[in-house]
């Protein structure tokens, strides 16, 4: 079979309702951004799942490395004072 040039890969993000965040739903191949968005409509929103679509070229997406997951997220591990439950409140005080 003759070798054909592949369409680039796009990662697709869908906002299901106004006001919500865009969520990753999967990926697809398309020649350009417009085709990516139109195909994403047909592939991922056949039942009104979407209100807005983002298409990002997969090669432009950068990710943290799972192998240093431990060390990378370590700094957040021992800082309980970042949570409201860390603080002692007098019982009499209301709405705090």
């Amino acid at each position: 079979m003759s070798k054909e040039q592949d369409f680039p890969l796009w990662e697709i993000f869908i906002q299901s309702k106004r006001g919500l965040d865009h969520k990753h739903v999967g990926s697809l191949h398309a020649a350009d951004a417009q085709m990516a968005i139109e195909n994403a409509r047909d592939v991922y929103t056949r039942r009104n799942e979407g209100n807005s679509i983002w298409a990002v070229l997969a090669e432009n997406l950068h990710a943290s490395k799972p192998e240093d997951q431990g060390a990378f997220f370590d700094p957040a591990d021992d800082k309980v004072y970042r949570h409201p439950t860390f603080y002692v409140m007098p019982k009499e005080a209301k709405y705090i």
């Binding site: 070798k3 054909e4 592949d6 369409f7 890969l9 999967g26 990926s27 697809l28 191949h29 047909d42 592939v43 991922y44 056949r46």
Partner: peptide, 19 residues
Amino acid sequence: AGHGLYLYSAAETLGIGRD
């Protein structure tokens, strides 16, 4: 057709190309 595409993209995350 859509389901085929979801599955092909899942396979591609393992390092095999669509072609």
